Amino acid sequence: MYRDRIDAARRLAEAMAHLRGAHPLVLAIPRGGVPMGRIIADALEGELDVVLVRKIGAPGNPEFAIGAVSEDGSVHLEEEAALCRDDWLAREVARQRELIDERRRRYTPVRSPIDPTGRVVVVVDDGSATGATMAAALATLRQRDPARLIAAIGVAPPDTLARLGALADEVICPEAPHHFRAVGQFFATFDQVEDDEVVRLLGGAT
């Protein structure tokens, strides 16, 4: 459905052209959301930062999210998490929190995260299967009192979008296929985004 993340970002930016002039704060979910966030922020004349949330993957199937951890330390669990051992889950949550702290130090070492309070905030990701990571990001940001909270996703199944609609003021997703296995199946090119690229994009280079 998309050539690559650039293609997806341009389509999302077109769908959000009405935000130009509102100086939106575009918060990308690393790492795949960051190249898209850079394009969207530039197109909408906004600012770019990251919102740090980490998916908790199911044992034996790490791509399937059973929850997520947010930068503020909060944990959001799906129903499937009840099937996991408590000790395993506690270790996984601790590991993801350490990774979040490490990423913040690496990504924005000389400044604090940009405050979303009172801003039009756009949360960007390349795609979402269960919605767990995006839901955690939205729930965390809602507590910071943004003026408007928008979820912008390249691709997600309809049931995920319906769930996210209860957490965001607006959900924008150009592609919502019913048959959904993984985000990468909807991109002709879906290369891994490296940390060095994230740091470069957050620095404003394109």
Rank of each mutant, 00 (worst) to 15 (best):
G37T: 08
F64W: 13
I56D: 00
G73S: 10
S70Y: 10
L99I: 09
E47A: 13
R97F: 08
D86L: 14
D42Q: 14
D42G: 10
V51H: 08
P62E: 07
A82P: 00
R31Q: 01
D49N: 07
R85V: 04
R31P: 00
A81R: 03
E47W: 09
L99M: 09
N61Q: 11
E45R: 13
L44D: 00
A58P: 00
E71F: 12
Q96R: 15
R38G: 06
P62G: 00
A58S: 10
L27T: 06
L77T: 03
G67E: 05
L99F: 04
A22N: 13
E92H: 08
H23M: 14
R91M: 12
G32H: 01
I66S: 02
R104L: 11
R105G: 12
R97C: 04
A94Q: 14
G37F: 04
R54M: 04
V53H: 02
A65C: 02
A94M: 07
L44I: 03
A90C: 04
A22W: 12
D49H: 10
G32D: 01
I66D: 01
S74E: 15
I40S: 02
P24R: 03
E45Q: 13
V53C: 07
L48E: 07
G60P: 04
V50A: 10
D101Q: 15
A82E: 14
E79A: 15
P35R: 05
A94E: 15
A58D: 06
G67V: 10
A58R: 15
A90K: 11
E45G: 11
V34C: 03
R31H: 02
R85T: 13
I39S: 05
R91S: 13
V75F: 07
R31V: 00
A82F: 08
D101L: 14
R106D: 09
L25P: 00
A82T: 10
A58Y: 12
G32M: 02
A22D: 15
P59Q: 11
K55Q: 08
V69Y: 08
G37Q: 05
V53A: 12
E92S: 10
S70D: 11
E102L: 13
P35T: 06
G32K: 04
D101R: 15
I56E: 02
A94K: 14
E71L: 09
V75Q: 03
P62T: 06
W88K: 09
R103E: 12
N61A: 09
L44R: 00
R105N: 08
H76F: 14
V34I: 10
G73N: 10
D72T: 14
D86S: 15
A65N: 01
V50W: 01
I100H: 06
A41R: 02
